[in-house]
């Protein structure tokens, strides 16, 4: 199986490479249209700022390449947010795969610290990425912006309010949390994606 990881100006891409390697998969890191197009699975990870990243993706034609992919694609963290229609972070127009906006967390009580950082539970709605999950499981989050619950929500988490911990539509999958940093549970989620 050929797994390609979208190479762009994002942090933490290597942790995804390492996580896949622990599952026995050597991924290719690439921004080449043909390489991405011919992969069996594509992962679009990322830690960074939305408007700067969108600008980079557009300049490198990666916006069109990603939205045109037909094989299973997994967006992680900023990757999930960039797959949505618009982000409040830097007022950025995003890829529009999921027609839902990305909003900033508004703390309601003092305990509501932003970023939402640490281990929180997800409750799966759609089973594709969460096959075999029969109870809420803890995964690792670090983010200040969130995707509201919508028709494509595949898993839900509550922090300040309920939000989309994961999305799914057609061949596009996404997680707000970091499966590559979520221990054994995260590895199961990545394996489920590889098995799709």
């Amino acid at each position: 199986m050929k797994v390609a990881i979208v190479r762009y100006n994002a942090g933490n891409i290597h942790s995804v490479v390492h996580a896949l390697k622990r599952l026995g998969v050597e991924a290719v890191l690439t921004d080449d249209s043909a390489e991405l197009g011919s992969a069996d699975k594509v992962i679009f990870p990322g830690v960074g700022e939305a408007s700067t990243t969108m600008k980079y993706l557009k300049e490198h034609n990666l916006d069109k390449i990603i939205t045109g992919l037909r094989q299973p694609v997994l967006g992680i963290c900023l990757g999930q947010q960039l797959m949505c229609s618009h982000s409040e972070e830097g007022d950025a127009d995003c890829l529009g795969i999921f027609d839902v906006p990305v909003l900033k967390f508004q703390p309601e009580r003092h305990e509501d610290k932003v970023p939402h950082m640490g281990w929180n539970t997800i409750e799966a709605v759609d089973r594709s990425l969460f096959k075999g999950f029969d109870k809420p499981e803890f995964v690792y989050f670090v983010h200040s912006f969130y995707v509201p619950v919508c028709e494509w929500t595949a898993a839900e988490t509550r922090y300040i309010l309920p939000f989309s911990a994961s999305l799914h539509k057609d061949n596009f999958y996404a997680t707000q949390f970091h499966p590559e940093k979520s221990g054994a549970i995260g590895e199961r989620i990545l394996q489920n994606f590889l098995d799709i």
Binding site: S15, H18, R22, K181, G183, G186, E187
Partner: peptide, 8 residues
């Protein structure tokens, strides 16, 4: 550590 450990 980064290549072998799967938590932050």
């Amino acid at each position: 550590i980064a290549s072998e450990i799967s938590i932050p």
